[in-house]
Design a protein around this nucleic acid. Structure first.
Length: 420
RNA sequence: CCUGCCGAUCUAUAGGG
């Protein structure tokens, strides 16, 4: 009996569901009993397969033969309901298990909290977390990861940070990836000071930051044009023994490019190669962008060739960058030549690519050509976005076609593109 | 012995004082 039970679980683990079922049948026939673990594992397998009726059949059978479902069994049923979005039913089960004197554990709460996030019921997720504390349970790394990354994704960075502080206060160890996401959230929200403060806190609490954390911070410092601080952080990070990766260098290079410091960008490019880290497509894209914005087309083209020599295929961003570069320099012909070229190698332009072209035509007062591109986009199923709208409105206004601008705006509004 | 979350960080497009 013991061996058969183990066998069924083994078969389920190797996804051999039908064979596992056969063994179960044979066991029933031979009068052997499945234990709670085996019943539970079988129910889980059926749930994961989407065979809910089979799962409930098993659950009924389990009760019939007097095998008492435990917390894990309920957790599985609750998860299945959460997956289907039936959160009310999941919550009912959570109540029902307690009526049967089964105490929900950390997994029960974590499952429900994850389900609530998926259903966008953030307040209930938070209050359930609180309920969990009140019941004397300590959230684990998974629980806090769900809460913190969930709130970050929603843009509720302050709530996420609050949960994080509470966690540290309770001496719980978050995952380094949880910290990385929170720090990135703070960075993206422009809260650099708090992000840097969090880094200090992590280090003090002996939570090792990872390279992604540093990259996020470097990025926000570069974007804020605080190159001195970025450099200091980079040196600090290297001094602590963290190894910069390709994203680290790309971030620094892009920062230089954005302020027009191309020579420094190239110095960093050489330095990364010396350290054995090879530039990738993003590296080249940043450099090409920097060169284009300075009007250095020949050098940009040279980099494009260098990419090809190194077997780095130019991508959508590379072409969009070049197209925009030529547009900004007023060379619509060259821009359109790149548009043809990208399509020849099966790279499909996206909304950003078209916006650059439409903007050029608008600034040339050539609204007719601009609208032609709008049609071309539509033919490809690309919807104009908020940028497209402001480009066109700006274009129409600058040639004093106020009525047309108004009409256009209304049309866009009716198509679901709200002006900002 | 059966159950829960996660691959997050870098590159291209518009508008105002």
């Amino acid at each position: 009996q013991g061996i058969c039970n183990r066998l069924v679980i083994g078969l389920l683990k190797s996804k051999n569901i039908s064979l596992a079922c056969e063994v179960c049948e044979d066991m029933f026939k031979a009068g052997l009993r499945l234990d709670v673990y085996t019943f539970t594992a079988t129910i889980n397998a059926f749930c994961k397969e989407g065979k809910i009726d089979k799962a409930s059949e098993m659950f009924v059978k389990m009760e019939e033969v007097g095998s008492i479902p435990d917390v894990v069994t309920y957790n599985i049923l609750i998860q299945n309901l959460c997956r289907k979005g039936s959160l009310d039913h999941a919550y009912d089960l959570y109540k029902k298990m307690q009526a049967r004197a089964l105490t929900p554990n950390v997994v029960t709460y974590t499952t429900l909290i994850a389900g609530l996030f998926k259903a966008s019921d953030f307040d209930k997720a938070k209050s359930l977390a609180h309920e969990m504390y009140c019941n004397g349970l300590v959230p684990c790394a998974v629980t806090t990861d769900i809460l913190i990354t969930g709130f970050c994704k929603e843009g509720k960075i302050e709530t996420a940070a609050e949960i994080f502080r509470e966690m540290l206060y309770r001496d719980l160890m978050p995952r380094d990836s949880t910290c990385a996401r929170l720090i990135n959230g703070l960075c993206k929200a422009g809260n650099v000071e708090e992000a840097l403060g969090l880094l200090d806190t992590m280090i003090k609490k002996c939570i090792l930051p990872n390279i992604i954390t540093f990259n996020s911070l470097l990025n926000v410092l570069c974007k804020a044009k605080k190159s001195k601080q970025a450099e200091a952080l980079f040196l600090d990070m290297v001094g602590r023994g963290f190894v910069p990766d390709v994203v680290t260098f790309n971030t620094l290079i892009d920062g230089c490019c954005k302020v027009g410091n191309i020579s420094k960008a190239f110095t960093i490019k050489e330095y990364m190669v010396e350290r054995g880290i090879h530039p990738n497509v993003s590296t080249y894209n940043s450099l090409i962008n920097g060169l284009c914005k300075l009007g250095k087309i020949c050098e940009a083209n040279a980099l494009l060739l260098e990419m090809l020599e190194r077997n780095l295929g130019p991508d959508l961003v590379t072409y969009s960058t070049l197209i925009d570069g030529h547009c900004k320099l007023g060379d619509i012909n060259e821009a359109e030549r790149f548009l043809d070229e990208m399509m020849k190698i099966n790279l499909m332009p996206n909304i950003s690519t078209y916006n650059a072209l439409i903007d050029r035509h608008c600034k040339d007062g050539n609204l007719e050509e601009a609208f032609k591109f709008m049609d071309e986009m539509a033919g490809k199923g690309l919807m104009p976005d908020i940028a497209t709208c402001s480009i066109i409105v700006h274009g129409l206004c600058s040639i004093a076609q106020m009525e047309e601008a108004n009409t256009f705006l209304n049309n866009m509004r009716n198509n679901g593109c709200l002006p900002n």
